[in-house]
Amino acid sequence: MTIQRTNGSLYTHIENRIATIEFGHPASNALPGELLNRMADTFRELSRNDQVRVIILKSEGERAFCAGASFDELMSISNQEEGTLFFSGFAKVINAMRTCTKPIIGRIQGKTVGGGVGLAAACDYCLATEAAAIKLSELTIGIGPFVIEPAVSRKIGLAAFEALSWKATDWQNAYWAKEKGLYAQVFEKISEVDKEVQFLAEKIASYHSNAVKALKKITWQGTDHWDTLLQERAKISGALVLSEFTKEKLKSFKK
């Protein structure tokens, strides 16, 4: 199944009990609101699909994994309601990944920023290339990584999250991300990542489904309050994005 629109594409393929979700956007696989909502819906649907045992999340191309929030959409936000609605998209995706009964393998082939780091953190297991550097650049445009913080901190720890957030202009390489726990393995080539992702997915698909579901549930224990928490965080970001500081920064970045 493919959902293709001017603001992004989403492709879902199921074979041998393995579902692959591939998203894309011309702006380095950025995430506009509609694409976020479609992605959340897809995770929910696959969670209920008895023909699926494991999910692979990937993005198009060989460069950036995800550029985070769509700058065009951020610039178009004109009131608190619109701002909260947009950032709620990230909350919906993370919560859909969190509550999904199937383990999610992240295939990270290149650089990832902001909300893209949140996506990687919400995966249950990530494999990456050496090119998969990460950055939380939100402070540079007057907002913050508030919605994704719980997922990122859960994966790499609060200290590492703070290091990423305060040094908002700095990239951390894939081996730093592996050391902190975001990536489980790092490979030199995309072909090597793809081979290992497929091998792992096939292994997990062969395991007892109830045992896999139980393990997924246990590893996300203590996150039931995220439905409320992430929505509250979306309101914070939705208000900050309306500031003149942010509007000017977005304009300058676009130029």
Rank of each mutant, 00 (worst) to 15 (best):
M1W: 11
I3D: 13
Q4M: 11
G8Y: 01
S9C: 11
L10E: 04
Y11V: 14
N16I: 06
R17I: 04
R17D: 12
I21Q: 07
E22I: 11
F23D: 02
G24W: 01
G24E: 02
H25A: 03
G33S: 12
E34G: 14
L36S: 06
T42M: 10
R44M: 12
S47T: 08
R48C: 09
R63H: 13
A64V: 06
A67L: 12
A69Q: 05
D72R: 09
N79V: 03
L85M: 13
L85T: 12
F87P: 00
G89M: 01
F90Y: 15
A96D: 02
R98F: 02
T101F: 03
K111L: 10
V117T: 02
V117C: 02
C123L: 04
L127N: 01
T129H: 00
A132G: 09
L136H: 05
I141H: 04
G144K: 11
G144D: 14
A151P: 00
R154Q: 15
A159P: 06
F161V: 02
W166P: 09
D170T: 08
W176H: 00
W176R: 00
A177C: 00
E179W: 05
E179A: 09
K180S: 04
K180L: 05
L182Y: 00
E188C: 10
S191A: 10
E192Y: 09
V193I: 07
Q198Y: 15
L200D: 03
A201R: 00
I204M: 05
N210Q: 11
V212N: 02
A214E: 14
A214N: 11
Q221R: 12
Q221W: 11
T223E: 09
D227W: 07
T228V: 12
L230C: 14
A234C: 07
L240F: 06
V241I: 13
V241F: 01
E248D: 09
F253D: 10
K254Y: 15
K255T: 08
